[in-house]
Design a protein around this nucleic acid. Structure first.
Lengths: 201, 201, 201, 201
DNA sequence: TAGTAAACGAGACGGTACGTCACGTCTTCCT
DNA sequence: AGGAAGACGTGACGTACCGTCTCGTTTACTA
């Protein structure tokens, strides 16, 4: 698979999919999200506008595919060490957001897709679910080891992690360093019962 | 002072500031962020476009002022009860984000302002700093009581809170209920040492 | 009145009507009818496309107004001499068509307007009726003198004149010289009874 | 030979020439000249675009061939009666133009070909010369009978006839009835000396 | 009868122009 | 004098066709 992933037609794509998505990322990092126009991408890719519109219904879908190329959703290997695994999960999340390209584009994308539930669902699938499941596996492994509650709320953990990281990056502009990473891991490991489903008062 | 707050000219405003900001909020909730155009606001407010441009430099500033009107940054009263105070802080944050108008607009705004550091700084001042300081007071009060470390990292606490809430609202679409609120409070109170400045390993 | 005549809004027009219609004629003579694009006219006039679209609904209306500026529909003065007056009428018709701009554009215009009866009616009014009435006056004057039948079919006369001239110019490409002009006049004066309404067999 | 006549390659043609030219005429009468696109013709004919482009260089050539199929250029038989023969010539001309397909398309075609002298020459050959020569034969026969001057200007006669007919059809929209036909014949027979080459003053 | 070369349908491609929309600036006219 | 009304130059939008160009697939002639 090389492209047209977000738009759904995962089996096929334009011959110039690579050129186009690459151009989209180039324009995105040079001009920022508001400066990313289809015409600019077409020009940068040396491609006709219609070739882009033939395969992506709109700017949002194109950007989604372009970002999907660089969005990491790796599996967390079993290191035998819960802290190390969770740190790896947090680091992966940080690396996903620690560039203007992604930090600015993902929320803008979400905003653009909000009115369209179908596209929003697809967005979540591509950018959230795949990564979340991989991290959830590591979290459940930690639960098996007894380091986390057996009914650990993997979604809450990841909402706290990704939310904090994205918020810092986009809104406050603070750096995403290993201090933060360590804090985020420890918040979970230090009071694991807060991230259990049944821990409601 | 009634308006033009974000744009800096806090001492004055157009005669129709109220009408205009109200119209902006109306359009925002009816058409969503992408449908909010200056021309639509002018029409809704029964006002000339130039009147808007006379007082707000661009669409972003206008939206910022419109949102600032409904963004809560209340002081947290001394209730003598740390948990109750923190819960109040979290509830205020949730109430700020628990509507599409704000959830979609704030990130879109941030993205629009990102390339302009001055406006971004002003944005942070209006939407983050005022609220943060009020909550920081409560956090430091809790530290004085001994419920939190004396060097509590008020920014980290609030990044976790607001980040998680905004992320849920915008990206995953999950509900923001009192379960979540309680979890967020307890994350902090259950392992307070994780939110201390010096707690780095 | 300087413009927007064809489009109906005769009382008003864009501030740059002159520039725009002039540019249209320039492009028309330099690029020919098929090369006349709205974008080319806008560029030549140093004007935004939207200014053109604000005042003319489409390319046809614009060209119509541009041509109307140079289309002659003079009154034929009473010279006391039927032959001289008719020759003047024929000469005026020839001068209207004896340039590529008009010869190529008028039929193209007619073809473009054919599907729209309203615009076609307006086209006839602007380009045919005004001129025809002026010539009809001269023809009736000739009838009063006894040089033509009292019920002279002024439309037929002018159909023969304009038809022959336009056909030569556009289809056969032959020159429109004074030989032709003289023939056309004499065709009418030599057998005037053929141009009477009641002369049907 | 069935097609590709206008384009010059008279010896051969696509297997689907019939389908294509038929589709062209169908589209022409259903959508009008401006709606005739190569893609529409290809779709209507159930044919690939490239098949059309393989045999016709452009839209104009295709339309020309499509029209050539229905353009009549019959010989005028010797009826022994000048008036009857000329009336037949005029009727043939009328029948050529008395449908929107031809009336709108021929001028549009001429306009499109104007900038290209070669194609224009070919256009004249196909649509004018063949018919003109057949009619010229009848006119010269009339001259031999003494009904027209021996140096009758056959071109002028036909310019007057075809010009008047086409002008009525395209520009004024008046009907082409037998009144008109009779007038056109009589204009020539009533003052034949006006249609002589040497009759210049 | 099989092999081959053309013509074919389908449709992607790089383009151009379309007509629309909103921007942010500007001018005009009314109150 | 201030503001509503809205025209202006600009530039991106998404659409429609252009004419060119691969693709396999018939089709029909040759071997």
């Amino acid at each position: 698979m090389t492209s047209a992933y977000f738009s759904g037609s995962s089996e096929a794509g334009p011959r110039s999919a690579g050129k186009i998505l690459g151009a989209a990322r180039t324009v995105l990092s040079q001009q920022g999200y508001p400066g990313l126009t289809i015409e600019a991408v077409a020009a940068e890719a040396g491609v006709g506008k219609s070739t882009i519109y033939r395969w992506w219904p709109n700017k949002e879908a194109l950007i989604a595919d372009a970002l999907a190329q660089v969005f990491r959703a790796d599996e967390i290997p079993d290191l035998g060490d819960t802290h190390a695994e969770l740190r790896q999960a947090v680091d992966m999340t940080i690396s996903n957001y620690d560039n203007d390209e992604m930090a600015a584009s993902l929320p803008a994308l979400a905003v653009g897709l909000l009115p369209n539930p179908d596209l929003m669902a697809r967005f979540r699938e591509v950018f959230l679910l795949r990564k979340r499941e991989n991290i959830a596996v590591a979290l459940r492994r930690a639960a098996d080891r007894g380091d986390l509650p057996h009914d650990v709320d993997t979604d809450l953990v990841q909402d706290v992690w990704a939310g904090t990281i994205l918020y810092r990056r986009l809104m406050t502009g603070e750096v995403l360093d290993e201090h933060l990473a360590e804090h985020l891991v420890k918040i979970v490991t230090a009071s694991p019962e807060q991230f259990s489903h049944k821990s409601c008062p």
